[in-house]
Simulated scan of single mutants.
Amino acid sequence: MREVVGNAKPIYKNRFSFVWDYRRDETWLTNLSTRGLHLNRPGFMRYRFEYEPSVRYEYRMDYQDAMNAKQLEEYCDLYADAGWEYVGTCVNWRYFRRPHLEGETIELYSDKESIRSFYRKLQKTLGVLALANVAILLVNSSNWLGGWSGEGWIATFIGAVILFQLLCTLLLGYGVLRFQRLIQHHTD
Rank of each mutant, 00 (worst) to 15 (best):
K13P: 03
N14Q: 14
R15N: 08
F16Y: 06
S17W: 14
S17F: 15
W20A: 09
W20D: 15
D21S: 11
Y22N: 06
R23M: 06
R24G: 13
R24F: 14
D25N: 12
D25W: 10
T27V: 15
L29V: 09
N31T: 05
N31A: 03
L32P: 07
L32S: 10
R35Q: 14
R35M: 07
H38K: 08
N40F: 15
G43L: 04
F44E: 01
M45N: 09
Y47V: 01
F49M: 06
F49S: 10
F49D: 09
E50M: 15
E50F: 13
Y51H: 12
V55Y: 02
V55W: 00
Y57T: 05
E58Y: 11
Y59M: 08
Y59H: 08
Y59S: 09
Y59E: 09
R60D: 04
M61C: 13
M61Q: 11
Y63D: 03
Y63Q: 03
Y63V: 01
D65Q: 10
A66L: 03
M67Q: 09
M67K: 07
A69N: 12
K70I: 11
K70T: 14
K70N: 12
Q71F: 05
Q71E: 15
E73I: 02
E73H: 13
E74R: 14
Y75F: 11
C76D: 09
D77H: 04
D77Q: 11
L78A: 02
Y79F: 12
D81C: 01
G83S: 02
W84R: 02
E85P: 00
E85L: 06
Y86P: 01
V87G: 00
G88P: 04
T89S: 13
C90S: 12
C90Q: 07
V91Y: 05
N92G: 05
N92D: 13
N92I: 03
W93N: 11
W93Y: 12
W93V: 09
W93T: 07
R94V: 02
Y95P: 05
F96S: 01
F96E: 04
R98V: 02
P99C: 02
H100Q: 01
L101M: 02
E102Q: 10
E102A: 13
G103L: 03
G103D: 02
E104F: 02
E104K: 05
T105H: 14
I106R: 13
E107R: 12
E107Y: 15
Y109G: 00
Y109V: 03
S110T: 12
S110K: 05
S110A: 04
D111G: 06
